[in-house]
Design a protein around this nucleic acid. Sequence first.
DNA 1: GGCTTTTCTTGACAGTCGTCAAGACTTTCC
DNA 2: GGAAAGTCTTGACGACTGTCAAGAAAAGCC
Lengths: 211, 211
Amino acid sequence: MTQVSSKSQERLSRRQVDKFSERRAQLAASALQTLSELGYARTSLREIAQNSEFSHGVLHYYFRDKVELITHCVRQYKAECVTRYDRIVVDAGSAEELRQGFGAAMAATLREDATLHRLWYDLRNQGLFEESFRADVLDIDQSLERMIWRVVSRYAELAGSPPSVSPGVAYAIFDGLFQQALLGYLTGRDSAAADLQTNVEQVLDQLVVRT
Amino acid sequence: MTQVSSKSQERLSRRQVDKFSERRAQLAASALQTLSELGYARTSLREIAQNSEFSHGVLHYYFRDKVELITHCVRQYKAECVTRYDRIVVDAGSAEELRQGFGAAMAATLREDATLHRLWYDLRNQGLFEESFRADVLDIDQSLERMIWRVVSRYAELAGSPPSVSPGVAYAIFDGLFQQALLGYLTGRDSAAADLQTNVEQVLDQLVVRT
DNA sequence: GGCTTTTCTTGACAGTCGTCAAGACTTTCC
DNA sequence: GGAAAGTCTTGACGACTGTCAAGAAAAGCC
């Protein structure tokens, strides 16, 4: 954008870059909202623009194409959710407290962010078909696995017994439980969130070897 | 199609109905293949027709619209896969045999039917967005849960200890493991199938209470 | 054989899609 | 002030979508 390197120019440039990526983030937020409402298959750029305060042409000013927009969305989504349970891990003073905090937090995000989770599973699946999203999907998935492992390993530590499963298996298990609960929740099973909490707490307990 | 009830007419009618639903099944198979290759978002009726020996117009002769076609596909898919492990359950003479058979069968279907499984997860997710698929998705999901439970409960029986989880939790756990393995397998992790087998056998063992 | 019904193809329709270019508007800078 | 750079809108393009109607082709019937 600028090749001169005077201080004022640099400051200008930086400010512009900031503004540029601020708008990118703003548009990505609109895209994220649209995607979480409609799903990948039914989301168009015009629809995204209508959920923002701009016209559809501006998307190509801030993003090269649809793939770059969605990729940016996915990355933005990741940053928000990948530390979801860290607070609970740090604050928990006992195994029991961690267990209940984790179960409650999963049930809470199921209730509050259901459409966003639904989108994540949709996009993760798109990554199985389309090469373009694959790298980001795998990256986020690994981050989520580490996030879950922080919970499980800390729980084992507090409980005084080592975990009985690998990080990958632990993640797969809680992901399976969550996905099932999401299906139930979004199809109107009222007990879905409460059941999830119960199941998560029960399973977490079984993931450390009994002494 | 016919209101006369002479025997020859009935026989004709029945033959026609059979032929009609045979062709439906044939077209649904083409659709299933296309869907499993491209995913729901990228599959069009013309593409499906190109994967069959007919032209695109014929789809509207056998199916009211796209939704009915895909719904029919999903039902057809279900019939094939919902009894996948029943043979193993019946044949297994010991807990150990069942455990290894189940692990091997899961790994085998991961390798052989990966794109079909990918499609199933895609369509299950579409059910979270689109009302139209929801009923069939939920129906199939429950069938799968029962299928898994036949394995787990039989295993517990053979092992002489009751299961430590509910049918829903058992299904969620193995579904999570399988989905993770599918992600690994389709993104080129060579050990995905072998890992799945190991994990499934290990987890199944943990799902019965130790005595 | 001809007649009727079923089956399939062709071509068109109205609409939507991602993309992009031309230009208007806004902001920034000297 | 005016020039320059950045930002946004508008309208168009070719391609693709699901749907449907008209009629050709095939099969079944007497």
